[in-house]
Design a binder for these strands. Structure first.
Length: 424
RNA sequence: GGAGAGAUGGGUGAGUGGCUGAAACCAACAGUUUGCUAAACUGUCGUACUGGGUAACCGGUACCCCGGGUUCGAAUCCCGGUCUCUCCGCCA
């Protein structure tokens, strides 16, 4: 969530930024927040005065009682009831004002970085890199949903039987490739200096709010209502929340964590051809990298993460492009996001396989994730990126690497799979 | 699931309703002493909001798991909730 102090100090910048997202009535919303904050402050001041006076009187009564001056004490007691009433009334108003303010702040997305292009939809994203030539497959080339049947490596019908649509069962060489990729991605992250974590894959409400999935995307998460827990849509949620309510020392920074987890997404409202095969699932595997760092370092860290992801995709020998997301397409909590897409040559489609973002202080503010600078506390910056999400990588790999003899496995994965070709 | 115990600052842990934002100890930080290390000594040592000041800083309020209540006054008493631990049961 945005900081009111920031909004106040840099109102113009905030307005310009939020307009880039195509947010309606930005100025009204900002002014409303500022007005509520003013109201909050004056109520607080007023209440503090009343409370201070009441405390003062209570102290006096205590002293009088102890020295046995009961009548004097009783006299003062009668003065306190007014104060009590006013502070109670002000307290109530203050509480409702604060609640309203927080709700308004929850509705404001992060302010995009200045490099974020204006725009509404994915069409407006800026392609910052794209490989020179895209692979051309013969006419007989098959999309991955046909290939997985042919080679019997993923079974959607079995998934439907035991769970439902969008929950595939990986089989035989398919299962082994998934395991190989997870290990390869984790090892690569370890080499890059990330510490491996293995978090729970269900989280409580507080964690949902901490990283901003709640209240914004309530409907996108599976909710285990009996215990009021949520299945994670990404490892970002448990990992970043490890640092909720934490004040980090300088020598603990930067935090670099990597985690493999399954991810669960309801994908309510998704339908049609673009969800075919592995393109969009309710459960999938992902290795996620997370960093916590200082405001000075965070964009350098973002670059580092971007390079890491790029290296992974290159090593997998997949054609790819990098997009700088436009204001309208960027996630609610992000200040700057790079998407990585690989080209899936039989579908002739670009598939998003990674999203690398800097959230600046937006998450840290909700998380209360800070460091000490001199004697003051300061919000840190959080970042994360997929490195990588597996199913679409697999889809592109299957399609692009199909040959009459089978499907080739990229060289870097062979030590992990133990085979270099998927065969019937 | 059954029974019991508990929740206090970075940690351990004290706390008769007013003198407690909170003892003491440990850790941490700064300094003195010291050839170095160690030891000893001195000091600092929570967070948020808020008023004043360029600032160092000074003042106010709140916070002893959370939410209510009693009281002039609550870490302390009462009610409700959450969580943790121990034992038993069940179980990968």
């Amino acid at each position: 969530m945005l900081q009111v102090s920031e909004i106040r100090a840099n109102k113009e910048k905030v307005l310009i930024g939020l307009r880039k997202r195509g947010l309606k009535e930005v100025e009204e919303k900002i002014d409303e927040v500022l007005a509520l904050d003013d109201k909050r402050k004056s109520l607080k001041t007023e209440m503090d005065v009343a409370l201070a006076e009441a405390n003062q009187l209570a102290k006096q009564i205590g002293q009088l009682m102890q020295s046995g001056q009961k009548e004097e004490a009783e006299k003062i007691k009668s003065q306190t009831s007014d104060l009590k009433e006013t502070s109670k009334k002000l307290g109530g108003e203050l509480e409702s004002t604060e609640e309203l303010l927080t709700n308004k702040l929850y509705e404001l997305p992060n302010v995009p970085h200045e490099s974020v292009p204006e725009g509404r939809t994915a069409e407006d994203n800026e392609v910052v890199f794209q490989v020179g030539t895209l692979p051309k497959l013969p006419e007989s080339a098959k999309p991955h949903w046909d290939l997985i049947k042919e080679y019997d490596i993923i079974d959607f019908d079995l998934g439907i039987k035991i769970t439902g649509a969008g929950f595939p069962v990986y089989k035989k060489q398919g299962a082994r490739i998934v395991r190989a990729m997870i290990n390869y991605f984790l090892d690569q992250a370890l080499d890059a200096g990330y510490l491996e974590m293995r978090p729970p894959i269900v989280v409580n409400k507080e964690s949902g709010y901490g990283t901003g999935q709640l209240p914004d995307k309530e409907g996108q998460m599976y909710h285990a209502t009996a215990d009021d827990l949520y299945l994670i849509p990404t490892a970002e949620v448990p990992i970043t929340n490890l640092y909720r309510d934490v004040i980090l020392a300088d020598d603990e920074l930067p935090v670099k964590n990597v985690a493999y987890t399954p991810c669960f997404r309801r994908e309510a409202g998704s339908w049609g051809a673009h969800v075919r095969g592995l393109n969009r699932l309710h459960q999938f595997d992902k290795v996620e990298i997370v960093q916590v760092t200082t405001p000075e370092e965070s964009y350098k860290a973002l670059d580092g993460m971007k390079n890491h992801v790029e290296r992974l995709i290159k090593n997998l020998e997949l054609p790819y492009r990098i997009l700088r997301l436009c204001g309208g397409d960027m996630g609610f909590t992000s200040a700057l996001t790079f998407d990585f897409e690989v080209y899936s040559a039989a579908q002739k489609k670009w598939l998003e396989v990674s999203s690398v973002s800097n959230f600046e202080t937006y998450q840290a503010n909700r998380l209360k994730l800070r460091r000490k600078v001199d004697k003051k506390t300061e919000l840190l910056h959080t970042l994360n990126g997929s490195a990588l999400a597996l199913p679409r990588i697999l889809a592109a790999m299957l399609e692009n690497n199909q040959t009459p003899d089978g499907i080739k496995i990229p060289k870097v994965l062979v030590p992990y799979t133990g085979f270099n070709m998927i065969k019937k």
